[in-house]
Measured scan of single mutants.
Amino acid sequence: SAVVMEEGSPGEVPVLVEPPGLEDVEAALGMDRRTDAYSRSSSVSSQEEKSLHAEELVGRGIPIERVVSSEGGRPSVDLSFQPSQPLSKSSSSPELQTLQDILGDPGDKADVGRLSPEVKARSQSGTLDGESAAWSASGEDSRGQPEGPLPSSSPRSPSGLRPRGYTISDSAPSRRGKRVERDALKSRATASNAEKVPGINPSFVFLQLYHSPFFGDESNKPILLPNESQSFERSVQLLDQIPSYDTHKIAVLYVGEGQSNSELAILSNEHGSYRYTEFLTGLGRLIELKDCQPDKVYLGGLDVCGEDGQFTYCWHDDIMQAVFHIATLMPTKDVDKHRCDKKRHLGNDFVSIVYNDSGEDFKLGTIKGQFNFVHVIVTPLDYECNLVSLQCRKDMEGLVDTSVAKIVSDRNLPFVARQMALHANMASQVHHSRSNPTDIYPSKWIARLRHIKRLRQRICEEAAYSNPSLPLVHPPSHSKAPAQTPAEPTPGYEVGQRKRLISSVEDFTEFV
């Protein structure tokens, strides 16, 4: 048969007729292969192709491409040299491709048809291009793949890379869960390890502090508590009631339409708007009261037996805890006409967050109470924005700035309102402590230090009264110190430094 060459192609190359033996071998191979691939376009007849790359030819070592076609129900084999250009295909004639002069020997084609199974398996396991790669995943090629499931790999992101949580363990979102698992493993320790309690022994800490320079003076030496005195035992138990972190309780009120001037209507609300609910979820963490331990979680007086509701929101960081007394989460009882059960919590909070959804101005004093010092007013606006402002009593104007209003988005509203309420509550605590000038409020841990110092002074006084020969370590507060001759004046800087060093040991009130 003659071949018409394309323009620009090399000279004529004689194409030899395939021997009958080659056709029989390739026909047997075509019957084993699956003929249901995917359909081509209507211009080209339905056909199945599979590209198999052999590394070497037997005796020649030339890479070839073998295409199996099922045109007219008769499979045909096409061998081509890759750099050459194939002729145009037609549905009426068999596929013809040019070969190099080196394939002119018909014996070479017979060798190609009689490829060993080793070469076929190696060509099938190679990388296939384009559409033949999808075909190689079918059941027909499963014989050339190794048996057994593939090893499982770690989760992959859409980009093909490992997620960040699997790369950096410290930033993994499941870090707290692993800590819980470690605690569970520790709890399952053997009885021999049960006595080993991690941490620092208080006796060891005391020993280090006792021999430090801070205890060089007799006034700073630790003293032993009497065991037989019940009054001192009660004082030590009272110390446990003062937490070592700051605590805040903040009221949250929802004002519906037409309720801006009605205290009873505001306290009777059992739910609010959708934006109000989203605002609550951002204030803190939802907790169930019956599962809380009052000595570990500050509840601000809420009952854990269901008297004040089942849930509330709280927030904490390293040095403070805040609980929100939310009116809509507290039960509304029919027998309580004046809502006294709610007001006994909300009316005693220094700061209230008022979500004013009424469309009218909310005035300070609508919720009557002796300790309502500051109101954080949240007014929802259009386009997911809110107006946040402050209202306070006249005696609080020096501590709280009420002249600045803020426009905040719904997303950042819980954070801004919480921070403003916490700052206002700190100012309210300082303002409330002014009624007792001898006990200015600095912080909870300073209050613990003052309680310890008062307890020490009482013990020293009782020891001096029981044994008059012992001198008083600290003179009583009601006694007057003996007159001392004025010492020589020293520079102001040295006096300030000495006073600062003494105050650092005794108390921190002056620095606050």
Rank of each mutant, 00 (worst) to 15 (best):
D217Q: 11
I223S: 08
Q230R: 11
Q230L: 11
F232A: 09
E233I: 14
R234G: 11
D240Y: 03
D240L: 04
Q241T: 09
I242M: 15
P243N: 07
P243F: 04
Y245P: 06
Y245D: 05
H248I: 15
I250Q: 01
I250L: 04
A251H: 03
G256D: 05
G258T: 03
A265G: 07
S273I: 01
R275V: 00
L280P: 00
L283V: 01
R285T: 15
L286M: 10
I287D: 12
C292Y: 14
Q293Y: 10
D295V: 04
K296V: 06
V304E: 09
V304Q: 11
G306A: 09
D308L: 09
G309K: 15
G309L: 13
C314D: 06
C314V: 15
D318N: 07
I319E: 13
F324I: 02
T328M: 01
T328Y: 01
T332V: 09
K333A: 13
K337S: 13
K342T: 05
R344G: 09
L346A: 05
V351S: 02
Y355Q: 00
D361K: 06
D361Q: 08
G365N: 12
G369A: 11
G369M: 11
Q370N: 13
F371N: 15
N372K: 03
F373E: 07
F373Y: 15
V374T: 03
V374D: 01
V376Q: 00
I377A: 03
I377F: 01
T379M: 05
L381Y: 05
D382E: 12
Y383S: 05
Y383A: 05
Y383C: 06
L387E: 06
S389L: 05
D395E: 14
G398T: 09
V400P: 03
D401N: 07
D401H: 05
V408H: 02
D410E: 04
R411N: 08
L413P: 00
P414Y: 00
V416I: 11
R418D: 00
L422R: 01
L422K: 00
A427S: 04
S428Y: 05
Q429V: 07
H431S: 06
H432Q: 09
S433Y: 12
Y441S: 14
Y441M: 14
P442D: 09
S443Y: 07
S443P: 08
A447Y: 08
A447L: 11
R448I: 04
L455Y: 12
R456Y: 13
R456I: 06
R458G: 11
E461K: 08
E461C: 07
E462M: 06
P468Q: 11
S469P: 08
P471V: 12
P471S: 11
P475S: 14
P475Y: 11
P475L: 14
H478T: 15
P482W: 07
A483R: 08
P491Y: 09
V495L: 10
V495G: 15
K499C: 11
R500Y: 10
L501F: 13
I502W: 09
